[in-house]
Each structure stands twice: as structure tokens, then as C-alpha cells.
Amino acid sequence: MNAFINIIKDFPRYLWSGWGAIASLFLFLALWDLGNQFNGSLVLPSPQETFIALWQMLHTVEIWTDVAITVERSLWGFVISVVLGGGLGVLAGSFATASIMSRPIITVMMGVPPIAWIILALLWFGVSDGSIIFTLVVASFPIVFVGALQGTRTLEGDLNDMSNSFKTPLLMRLTDVYFPHVFSYIFPASISALGMSWKVVVMSELLASTPTGIGASLAVARSHFDSPVAMALVLIMVIFLLLIEYVFLEPIKREVEQWRN
């Protein structure tokens, strides 16, 4: 509760610190416009055209349902990855043999590109939300798993001795000694996993030719050669990721990791 109040309290100051980021975004827009002037609107629509397309798009109902569906799918993939990756990672990290044995499997999973997983998923499960969520989990789960594994492997014997010296009860050892350490590994890994699942979800939707979602709209824009709409959709994805990362996750990260150097 205290942490939550601190997050809210620090929020205005945090926003104020964003001027640098805004300056760099505007520089990016300028370069984008320059690219448009050289290559023409079919290849690279100007920021202005894109924003107009975006504005019109935001006034339709379809885009909001598409965004909602895509967000829902990626959240499912993300949540399953964190729960599964966190749980299994801690379990594997608790046993030397399990951690040694799981490493190659994870390397294989991470080595297979998501684009190959979606093809396999389509063959196995057909065109469905299940295929898309499966791909997301396969792509993001290893990231969390490795984080949890490392967190568990690096639990310090010294702190353990210290807590044993006070005859600390098991539950308190879990909440005060083990969990904060493991969480400090799982949390950043989860942020990466969220980014991953957000990127992979659109790709999966596009390849699976589902009728709904941002990926589906992107496919339609492509078939109509409608570059401004395609750019606007890309913009929506980027804005969403930025919102989640900087409005939601970053303030939490600052609060829960303020004990770090």
C-alpha cells in the first residue's frame, strides 16, 4: 500500500523527467518526414498523413475491438509465461541437476524463431486463439524461466545463514529473504517478456490470418496498398508498448528496485 502511494506521489516528477525522451521522439519524427520527402508517400507516408489516418481510424469502432482483442491475447500469453516461467524457473533453480538439464532445452526453445512456432501451432491447433497464445507463451516463457532460474541459483548462502541464525520461520524466510531476491530477477525478465509477447502477437495474427486483431487489420492494409493505414497501425502498437512500459511498468520498477545501486 505504501509502495502504491509512493508510486502515485513520484509520478508528476517522473513525467517531468520525460522531456529528454520527447525531444528525441521529435527528432525521430523529423527524420521520418525527411524519409518521406525522399521516397514518396507510397513507400513511406509522412508523419502528417499517418497521424490523419490514425485520427480517422480512432473514430471507428473496429479499431478499438481489434486493439482489445490483441491486448487480450498478448496479456494471456504474458500471464501464462510469467506464471509458468516463474514457477518452473524457481523449481529448476532449486535443484542443480534440473538447472543443468533445463538449460539446453531453453536454448533450443529460444533458438527456434517465433515465426516457425506459429506455423507449427497452426498445424497442431488450427486457426484459433489457442495457436496465437501458444506461440506467445513459447516465445516469452523462456525469458522469464531463465530469470527465475538465475534468481534462484544466486540466492546467497550468507543471508541464508544470517536468517537461520535467528531461527527465522520458513514463511518469513520466503517472504523476506528469498522472494525479494528472486523477484528482482523475475521482474525485469517479465518486462522483456511483455515486449516480446506484444511483438509476437501481431505477427502471429497476421500469419494465422485470423479475422480479428491488429495483425488482421495490418493484413488488410497490406492487401489494399494502404501505407498510411499500415503506418498508423504500427504507430498504435508502438504507442501501446510505450504506454505500458513508461506509464505503468517504469514507475513500479523505480519503487520496487530503489534498494538497488
Binding site: D158, D161, P180
Partner: peptide
């Protein structure tokens, strides 16, 4: 009984106050 080690062995994610109260909390 209580211990003091060569290094302080404080929990880095807890404030000094919570670190001092660690043994009491366990009790």
C-alpha cells in the same frame, strides 16, 4: 543467541530499521 559476522549481512531490499527488526519479526 545471536550472531555478528565479518560482513554485516543485511537484507539489501529492507531499510535499516526493518533489518534491525528482522530477528524480532521472526520471533
Amino acid at each position: 543467541q545471536a550472531f555478528a559476522f565479518q560482513d554485516a549481512r543485511l537484507l539489501p531490499w529492507q531499510t535499516a530499521l526493518d533489518n534491525i527488526a528482522f530477528g524480532l519479526k521472526g520471533g
